[in-house]
């Protein structure tokens, strides 16, 4: 039984195929303007990588900003729930998830049974999100990966006015003009980011068993500073790309749904129609 999770985010879209407990494929793409196009493209890629077609998929759950308008979805679920399920599936016993996506940052706290106790997200500002790092990397003329790597070489991270992305940009330019070492500026960017995220996570009350997901988890600089700020070692999702934890969670829920529906005998036609309604071939 193959199911899919599709996370249509504001900056990237992710699709993940799951067969029982095995991840068959995982695709990540830049989102395009229409969420349904983003979803279709990223699903097509995931299917192609697994050499499957839409008809092979029993159930699809979508999540992310664009989740509501995806025609092939069987259901849609919020990314808070999906991220927590994905993280739990990969790291049983996890109690706190920090996810930093393109345009939001969320912290989710779970109880010992994996149920969500509380969650919070950043305000509407881009500071504290992946977008912030992207903007800063562009100003510095670095790739996102280099931004993370470089900061580990910094001996003297600068201070950065980073409450606002727009203003932080000015600051970075200011430091560049003053000839400050680029690694120190990169470190400042990552540190500023980590401080904002730490505030969001701390507002829930930090847990020892915590993980980090989302694109920013790939930035070693931010992660290192964040660990220092929070005083906690952050686990990284094993086996799947940290950006795909939400899509994975959606797939895990899809898997459960199908299993549950099989436990309770249902009229075959109804079951059939759900499966058929899953994905149309393009």
């Amino acid at each position: 039984m193959i199911v899919a999770g599709c996370d249509v985010g504001s900056l990237t879209s992710k699709a993940l195929l799951l067969n029982d407990r095995k991840v068959l494929s995982c695709a990540i793409q830049r989102s395009v303007s229409r969420p349904e196009d983003s979803a279709r493209r990223v699903m097509d890629q995931a299917l192609a990588e697994a050499s499957l077609s839409c008809d092979d998929i029993s159930y699809v759950i979508t999540t992310g900003y664009g989740r509501a308008c995806i025609p092939f979805a069987n259901d849609e679920i919020s990314e808070i729930t999906c991220h927590s399920r994905g993280a739990l599936w990969l790291m049983p016993g996890i109690r706190m998830i920090i996810d930093i996506g393109g345009q939001d940052c969320k912290a989710i706290k779970l109880d010992q049974n994996g149920r969500i106790i509380k969650f919070t997200t950043n305000d509407k500002c881009a500071a504290g999100t992946g977008r912030f790092l992207e903007v800063m990397a562009t100003v510095l003329g670095l790739s996102l990966e280099d931004l993370g790597e470089l900061s580990s070489h910094s001996r003297n991270p600068l201070d950065l006015a980073a409450a606002c992305t727009v203003w932080a940009q000015t600051e970075v330019i200011h430091h560049l003009n003053n000839g400050r070492p680029i690694e120190d500026i990169a470190a400042a960017v990552n540190l500023a980011m980590a401080k904002r995220v730490a505030m969001i996570a701390n507002s829930l009350g930090m847990e020892k068993s915590a993980c980090i997901s989302g694109g920013v988890a790939k930035n070693s600089g931010v992660v290192a500073y964040l660990e220092k700020q929070l005083g906690v070692k952050l686990k990284k999702p094993p086996r799947v790309d940290p950006q795909a934890v939400g899509a994975l969670g959606a797939a895990v829920i899809a898997h459960e749904r199908v299993q549950k529906s099989r436990e309770i005998p249902r009229p075959a036609a109804a079951e059939e129609s759900t499966v058929q309604g899953g994905i149309e071939s393009s």
């Binding site: 900003y65 509501a68 679920i77 919020s78 990314e79 808070i80 729930t81 939001d104 149920r115 969500i116 969650f119 997200t121 509407k124």
Partner: peptide, 16 residues
């Protein structure tokens, strides 16, 4: 979108 995401998640929690 931003508000809806959070309300959805809250409702999912309430329903669960």
């Amino acid at each position: 979108g931003r508000i809806k995401m959070r309300i959805d998640a809250f409702m999912e929690g309430l329903n669960a």
